[in-house]
Amino acid sequence: MNEAVLEKQSRFEWVKKHPLFVSMSVLAILILLIALFAPYITPYNPFETNVTQAYQPPSARHWFGTDKLGRDLLSRIIYGTRISVPSSLILVFLTFIIGSVLGIIAGYSGSYIDALIMRIADMMISFPGMVLAIAIAGILGASIVNAVLALTVIGWTKYARLARSLTLRIKNQDYIVAARLAGASHFAILKDHVFINTLPVLLVTATLDIGTMMLELAGLSFLGFGAQPPLPEWGLMLNEGREFMLAYPWLMVFPGLAISVVVIIFNLLGDSVRDIIDPRGNYD
């Protein structure tokens, strides 16, 4: 057997060993593709109102029914992936980057920089997050961007604490000292050694966070502090469907189902990533 065949075989073994990860990655990629190609797969224009078609129950023409303005619910839910998925990914990315960088700097530098960063983190953590998120999102003005900002302000602390404790574990090891003696700058050490070594654990935490962040964003939109009409955001759609729940229950069934399914997929993906990268579970 030549090397290419061997490699192919071992790759296949790897796929067979991690069925959950592979299947959830496929589903997650599918969701991303749905978001990307939404205009090509939706049966109707999600923003086009047609009052004569209002409150149609699910049927062959409108699989998920229509809302109060006669907009096709299925099309709106498909377009919803274009809001929920990117905004939660951006939110996780922002908290991850800001938190990790600050945490690594705090852990590596020690002294007053450490004290300053960590006291701010303590302050944010000694406080129920959603309360501050509502206040910030409400004061800044309701929009999906401000909701992401508000949750970033709350969310970075988790990564900062984690990154700091990981950095403290790494920074006095011999190879760091050796790199320093060899003349590497602090920046190079942070970039080439500290960051790389804290990355796996931080990445696991970030993947596990995607689903949670999606729920919090949808929650803010549900309360009216996130996406605004006529955007087809799932939390907002649930809130709009709330008034007419008794007569037109599909208006609250399908958006809720959409959130749940997408969050389940991302949570299972996070679980499987954790099992692969960190089987002993010391990521917390």
Binding site: A218, G219, L238, R242, M245, M252, V263
Partner: peptide, 13 residues
């Protein structure tokens, strides 16, 4: 995983 705002609406319904 199930969002509490959805669960709340279902219970209410």
């Amino acid at each position: 995983t199930i969002p509490n705002f959805w669960l709340g609406l279902i219970f209410l319904y």
